[in-house]
């Protein structure tokens, strides 16, 4: 059984937004088309399963610009699953955290419980929505949409239990870290933190 994980190398990220757009096109296309028909305001409020924020540091001329990526961490110990009153939030055998929208009542406990802000209420499908690691693609032998399109290879995906996988190799070097370890969530998304290379 694979244990899927992701590594995001923030040194390689150029902040181009390809991952964000690929995710919308792959996973939320119908909602997106609906938002397009509603106009600019709906687009401004359109929720994303993954997004990038830009951070500027330093004073001229010693400055840096960094990008941080929000995405579901597919925790091994997911608080969103334990708080769900209906069992709509669940974890697959491969450890992917998903939402069964037929069971979701929109109580948003999980939104509150997630330390990463990775979940949101999607009014178009009337359910909580979140990243699925593109499990429909992965089951078909493809990479998640965001990983497959990333021009610089900043996002990597694979089986953390397979020591030969790219993600395992990067995690094994110790250069990739999990966010908010203190929450005890055991995330399966790891970040290579940005360094100003000189």
């Amino acid at each position: 059984m694979a244990r899927y994980g992701m590594v995001i190398d923030l040194n390689k990220c150029i902040g181009c937004g390809a991952c964000v757009m690929a995710c919308i096109a792959e996973n939320r296309r119908e909602q997106a088309l609906k938002a397009v028909s509603e106009g600019l305001k709906a687009l401004e409020n359109f929720k994303k399963r993954t997004y990038i924020t830009t951070h500027i540091a330093g004073t001229y001329p010693n400055v840096g610009m960094y990008y941080l990526h929000m995405i579901c961490q597919h925790c091994e110990n997911p608080p969103c699953v334990s708080v769900c009153p209906t069992g709509a939030s669940y974890q697959t055998k491969e450890g992917v955290v998903l939402v069964d929208k037929s069971k979701c009542i929109g109580c948003e406990y999980c939104v509150q419980a997630c330390p990463y802000g990775a979940r949101f209420w999607d009014s178009y499908i009337r359910s909580i929505d979140k990243c699925t690691f593109c499990i429909h693609r992965v089951s078909a032998g493809e990479l998640p949409a965001c990983v497959s399109t990333c021009p610089t290879g900043a996002r990597m995906f694979g089986d953390l239990d397979n020591p030969a996988s790219e993600v395992s190799r990067v995690v094994a070097t110790g250069s990739a870290v999990a966010f908010k370890k203190e929450e005890g969530t055991k995330p399966k998304v790891f970040y290579v933190l940005p360094m100003r290379r000189r």
């Binding site: 181009c16 964000v20 757009m21 690929a22 997106a32 397009v36 028909s37 497959s148 399109t149 021009p151």
Partner: peptide, 20 residues
């Protein structure tokens, strides 16, 4: 040219076709 990769604009091409 792009070695199998495309950028945000390339991904957004879907919405160009259906842009009202």
């Amino acid at each position: 040219t792009n070695l199998g990769k495309i950028c945000a604009r390339g991904q957004a091409g879907v919405f160009r076709v259906y842009n009202p």
